[in-house]
């Protein structure tokens, strides 16, 4: 076998592997998308096709007309937005403090924040339930926002700290000379410089909150505070699961994540790969 045939062979193998893996990655999603665009006859057809024969948006319409789904959707949006805002504020202060100041207990604290990321969250369920029950916050939105702090915070603190570390201290020193306090310097000098990263991290926190399932499953189990993720897991009516609608709702729920990742991919991937090494 000469060099050239060997190279062609290698190429072919690479492409075949690529196609197999891409199919494995994509087909489940495409299949769901296709199902969501079919009418009920076709969804349960004995000879299903990947491309729907007649594309219909009935399933999507049905989801949008489902009042309880829309209610869960609103809950998810409110909870994710509020918890993202709180998380970003808390994390921004923390990241700035950890990045710019040295104080006793700094290193152990940073490690403990790192530890939250790997903490088995199931272990926290019982105490969370008891704490929130004592505060009469079970099945309320403020209760969930409080709990979501630990969902987003560990990652946002570490990501933001990385970005603030990258800004040379000299930039801020100029501001200090001009009489800026640390708080002013944070908001007038540092925040504008990390603005794109801050936006990406904020979106990431939003997605984490949006996707969260375990905590709302237990702590927001009644109709009024239920989130979309939990609603979707039990999206069943008296006749059983309506797979067409189920797929339509699932596709809709994944849209925010897909949009955010296509926009903020650069920052998140960079942050995640650094995150695995650093935090």
């Amino acid at each position: 076998m000469n060099r050239k045939t060997k190279r062609i062979l290698l190429r072919t193998v690479t492409y075949i592997l690529c196609i197999i893996i891409a199919a494995f990655a994509l087909l489940p999603f495409l299949w769901g998308l296709s199902t969501s665009l079919k009418d009920n006859v076709e969804v349960y057809s004995l000879n299903p096709t990947l491309i729907p024969k007649n594309i219909t948006f009935e399933n999507y319409k049905a989801v949008f007309h489902d009042t309880s789904m829309m209610h869960y959707f609103r809950n998810s949006v409110v909870i994710a937005l509020v918890s993202t805002l709180v998380t970003i504020f808390v994390s921004l202060f923390a990241a700035y403090g950890f990045s710019r100041y040295r104080f006793p207990g700094r290193a152990p604290l940073l490690t403990s924040i790192l530890f939250i990321r790997v903490l088995p969250r199931v272990c926290l369920l019982v105490p969370f339930y008891v704490i929130l029950a004592n505060m009469r916050l079970v099945n309320t939105i403020p209760g969930l926002v409080l709990v979501y702090l630990i969902v987003g915070m560990p990652l946002t603190v570490w990501l933001l700290k990385g970005y603030i570390d990258a800004i040379p201290i000299e930039v801020e020193e100029a501001a200090f000379v001009d009489g800026c306090g640390p708080l002013k310097s944070l908001f007038l000098v540092v925040v504008p410089m990390v603005a794109p990263a801050l936006a990406a991290v904020g979106m990431f926190a939003f997605i984490l909150a949006w996707n969260e399932f375990l905590f709302p499953l237990l702590l927001a189990s009644d109709e009024s505070s239920r989130t979309l993720s939990v609603g979707l897991a039990f999206y069943i009516d008296e006749t059983g699961i309506q797979w067409g609608q189920m797929m339509a709702a699932s596709i809709l729920m994944s849209l925010p994540a897909i949009c955010v990742f296509s926009y903020a991919q650069k920052y998140i991937i960079k942050g995640m790969s650094e995150g695995a090494v650093k935090g």
Binding site: V90, S91, F93, G97, L119, F128
Partner: peptide, 22 residues
């Protein structure tokens, strides 16, 4: 030290209430 601790105080409070205490 004081400034550093003031900046991280909210996150430490969250850590104490939502992780250490549980």
């Amino acid at each position: 030290w004081l400034f550093g601790i003031l900046f991280i105080l909210p996150s430490v409070a969250a850590l104490a209430c939502m992780v250490v205490y549980p």
